[in-house]
């Protein structure tokens, strides 16, 4: 299962629409969740509706939170999306078997069986979450809370039985022309990672859409890279050493 989790506090202002980008992700089988981080005020009506729409286009969830709730929200959203992804897959199967798409329509005892399967798959299947962090100037005071939320998410994922990995990106990049920069490649632990965002230079623009596209690309490469690596490991391990 693949997820993108976007943490932002406002509106995108350059490049491709993030809603289009999120729809792309969804068609690649990647669910997009969005957390809008509020300070004392709010993200504005425009920001709020964009956040909601990105998640809708990306087949994920969206939520507005203040910094204190960030860790718990990120953790719950990820978990909930895992269940949802599996639920959608199971519902497809149900449609073929029962001619009935919804779990709610099943009588309680049958529902119990289906939910047992969903829970089991949700706990044991592999999961990758790519976090995309908005590092525009207004996010600067919130990055400590974001980092805490990432560490907390890692802790929850480590408790799963299935293989779980995260990667971290931020946007915009510090140099001109970089939409998005990787801070952390796929990993299943954060031991020894002192700071996820060392010395960030906060940029002015907010290229949310291009950043999402960048990460979709990264996912794609990851799949190809891994497959070929697996083959080498299996078939030509003698050459590797």
């Amino acid at each position: 299962m693949k997820q993108i989790l976007l943490i932002t506090d406002g509106c995108s202002n350059v490049g491709l629409s993030p809603i289009v980008a999120a729809a792309h992700a969804n068609s690649e089988g990647i669910s997009v969740n969005v957390v809008g981080v509020l300070d004392h005020g709010d993200v504005g009506e425009l920001g709020a509706s964009e956040i909601e729409e990105i998640a809708r286009a990306g087949g994920g969830l969206s939520r507005m939170v203040n910094m204190r709730q960030l860790s718990q929200t990120v953790q719950m959203m990820t978990r909930k999306t895992v269940v949802q992804t599996i639920q959608i897959a199971v519902q497809k199967e149900l449609k073929q078997v029962l001619g009935n798409g919804s779990i709610e329509a099943l009588p309680p005892d049958k529902r119990a069986e289906v939910v047992r399967v969903i829970d089991e798959l949700g706990e044991t299947s592999g999961l990758q979450v790519a976090l995309i962090i908005d590092a525009s100037a207004s996010m600067k005071p919130k990055l400590a809370a974001v980092e805490e939320a990432i560490r907390d998410l890692m802790l929850s994922l480590q408790a799963r039985q299935g293989k779980s990995e995260i990667s971290v990106f931020h946007f915009p990049g510090s140099r001109n022309g970089d939409d998005c920069v990787m801070d952390l490649n796929w990993t299943d632990h954060l031991n020894g990672v002192q700071a996820i965002f060392p010395k960030l230079q906060m940029g002015g623009t907010t290229p949310t859409g291009p950043a999402i596209m960048h990460v979709i690309d990264f996912y794609r490469q990851g799949v190809y890279g891994r497959q070929s690596r697996d083959e080498t490991d299996g078939m030509m391990s003698g050459y590797v050493v």
């Binding site: 706990e123 907390d152 929850s156 408790a159 039985q161």
Partner: peptide
């Protein structure tokens, strides 16, 4: 052996850096 399904931060072992969130 599974991941704790629901918890409250201040009572959580992970929150206090006291260990994992495995049940």
């Amino acid at each position: 052996g599974k991941g704790i399904r629901q918890f409250t931060e201040i009572y959580d072992r992970g929150y206090w850096n006291g260990g994992s969130r495995s049940a």
